[in-house]
Design a protein around this nucleic acid. Structure first.
Lengths: 187, 187
DNA sequence: CCTTAAATACAGACTGGTTGGTATCTTTCA
DNA sequence: TGAAAGATACCAACCAGTCTGTATTTAAGG
């Protein structure tokens, strides 16, 4: 870890690396494995370095979750921009973003971390707010109970993907995706 | 904690209490709050007592999850016994048990703990096995993609319920239940 | 039935290791 | 040169787990 003196200083990159390593640790070894020391080691930085960027471990975790939700927001809005039909637009974007990510990576970057965040009451609040905001913003076009059910099914698929690597059953994602999207038009 | 000498010894009840307290702690304060000391204190027992009943902390957690899945199995089989129609029977039982529990308790006994178990890779395997077993056993009557989607939606509702207490949006459960059950018949 | 001894069910202090966090120093860059 | 970036050493708190001791049950023998 004495290497960081020699390499060119890129604080923004170090910060990102710390966030990524924390997320990866949570994903691969569980939330309990996300210790400050472990994150530092994975990122090739010492504790002094980490605490220079983040005031506390909680700040680091909060940063990871904030990053996660921010990226999710951006992806959803990008998907919505391509959709000309107002009705169910948000739901389609939600389904698309969710399932496409599950299909691309055999281990979703977010899924495990997102689930982890649900176990910690403080982070639960952040996540709950995110959902409440999204629902309220698009209530007029996506308030239909059928659309709500479609989104719930996408969440369920998200959940199932968590268990995929451990031998859990996995639905046919492309077929599920097509079915859910079709339901948003017939509603 | 010197009280346990005076009170009548009921090892089976103490064991149950320890399991319940561990589950409650995970639910209300997050998985990180489930320390051996905290569980002991909540159960009115010292560490010596806890480690008399459980060989390790992991054994305690495993016991909690095993209890959870066992009860879930029993509830599902009871619901299936009342259903005369073979096709989709398992899915209907799954939906019924899941949503009825969510509707009864404002904070489901299992939900948080079940989610917590997903963050720990070792417990993830147990849960994945449970799902795989259930799916394989009832593949003939409940293998239809529509039924699968119905179960996923129930899982999604389960997830949403976790966020309910923190201000998250909550679907109309009775309506959702009716809709999902109806879909198992038209499939 | 009463006594007694083994087995069970806990109490409570203690330990080695790990945790998040801090204080201080060194290097790099503008 | 001065401020940012990071290293190193260190600490108090806390963790799971162990050890030894004590009270309570249980069961056998008389």
């Amino acid at each position: 870890m004495t290497t960081a003196y020699r390499r060119k200083k890129q604080p923004e990159l170090v910060r990102r690396t710390l966030l990524d390593c924390a997320a990866t640790l949570a994903l691969e070894q569980g939330l309990a494995a996300v210790t400050v020391q472990a994150v530092c080691e994975a990122a090739g930085v010492t504790k002094g370095g980490l605490f220079h960027h983040f005031a506390s471990k909680q700040a680091l975790i909060d940063g990871v979750v904030a990053d996660l939700l921010e990226k999710l927001d951006a992806d959803i809005e990008a998907a919505m921009a391509k959709d000309p039909v107002p009705r169910g637009r948000f739901t389609r974007a939600y389904v698309t973003v969710t399932l496409d990510d599950l299909m691309l990576n055999q281990s979703s970057q977010w899924t495990a971390l997102y689930i982890s965040s649900l176990t910690e009451p403080s982070l639960r609040r952040v996540t709950a707010d995110w959902f409440a905001r999204g629902l309220e913003r698009y209530r007029e076009t996506d308030g239909d109970p059928v659309l709500e059910m479609v989104r719930l099914a996408a969440d369920g698929a998200w959940l199932a993907a968590l268990l995929r690597d451990d031998g859990g059953p996995m639905p046919d994602l492309p077929a599920l995706r097509a079915r859910l999207l079709a339901m948003t038009h017939t509603a």
